[in-house]
């Protein structure tokens, strides 16, 4: 058991940093098998969108945004205007603001430049592992850094492999089909409750019905209708309970 004054120790190579960093990394390992196929699909999707393997790898290193990478690649493939690609990515990325706000108390005492790096490493997975850390963890910032580092390594190697392999596979193979499959993988776990299920159904129906709209606006229209129905239903459920 550590002393409470150790809690703000975040200096790398300090005796407190390394063990906490490794604990975070170890806590992340069960998530690796789930991240590998997803990251490979992101690499394949970028190549399918017409990026060279090097551009796909740069895209992943600089953007590093999981589902937004997939969405952007998919929209580039279907020739959506840049404004809409960026808007959709922004909407999907808004959750990161919530994550980083809720992680803030962990980073008290961490120097600003180091926080810039920690912010870059923020992902759904690293956030989830950090929030699920043992209550006794004395250095949560170092623990987060460990989890985020392993996520980053896994993701970047996966997209690189996906981009290099994806460029070699003949175009008659329906490789682009990996993209909708992995979106389904993102969709399945969140369809737990009825408002979510209805949001998805309404969004899909509207997006299909409005597929004739220019600029892939059916995506935005469907998503907005889905969110509205989900919220209405949740409110209605809360009242009737």
């Amino acid at each position: 058991m550590r002393h409470p004054e150790d809690m703000t120790e975040i200096i790398p190579h300090s005796p407190q940093f390394r063990p906490a960093f490794w604990r975070g990394m170890r806590a992340f390992t069960p998530l690796v098998p789930g991240v590998v196929p997803f990251s490979m699909v992101a690499g394949i999707a970028a190549v399918q969108a017409g990026f060279t393997p090097a551009e796909s790898i740069a895209f992943s290193l600089i953007g590093y945004a999981g589902s937004a990478q997939l969405i952007a690649s998919q929209m580039v493939t279907s020739h959506a205007p840049t404004v809409l690609i960026v808007l959709s990515s922004l909407i999907v990325n808004l959750r990161f603001a919530m994550y980083s706000a809720s992680l803030l108390p962990l980073f008290v005492g961490v120097p600003l430049p180091r926080r810039w790096l920690l912010a870059y490493g923020l992902t759904d997975q690293a956030y989830a592992v950090t929030m699920g850390r043992p209550v006794t963890e004395p250095s949560p910032a170092a623990y987060y850094a460990g989890a985020a580092a392993l996520m980053w390594l896994t993701w970047q190697s996966g997209t690189a492999v996906g981009a290099l392999v994806g460029a070699k596979i003949p175009s008659t193979w329906p490789l682009d089909f990996a993209v909708p499959l992995s979106f389904i993988a993102l969709l399945v776990p969140v369809l737990q409750r009825r408002p979510q299920v209805f949001a998805a159904i309404v969004s899909a129906v509207v997006a299909v019905a409005a597929h004739g709209l220019p600029f892939r606006l059916n995506l935005i229209l469907g998503a907005v209708c889905g969110v509205a129905v989900g919220q209405l239903m949740q409110r209605w459920q809360a009242k009737s309970v």
Binding site: I71, F183, A199, A200, A207, H211, L219, G226, G230, Q231
Partner: peptide
Amino acid sequence: FVPVSVFAALVVP
């Protein structure tokens, strides 16, 4: 509700 709606609107069409 954003992720669930965006993913559905993207994948089904």
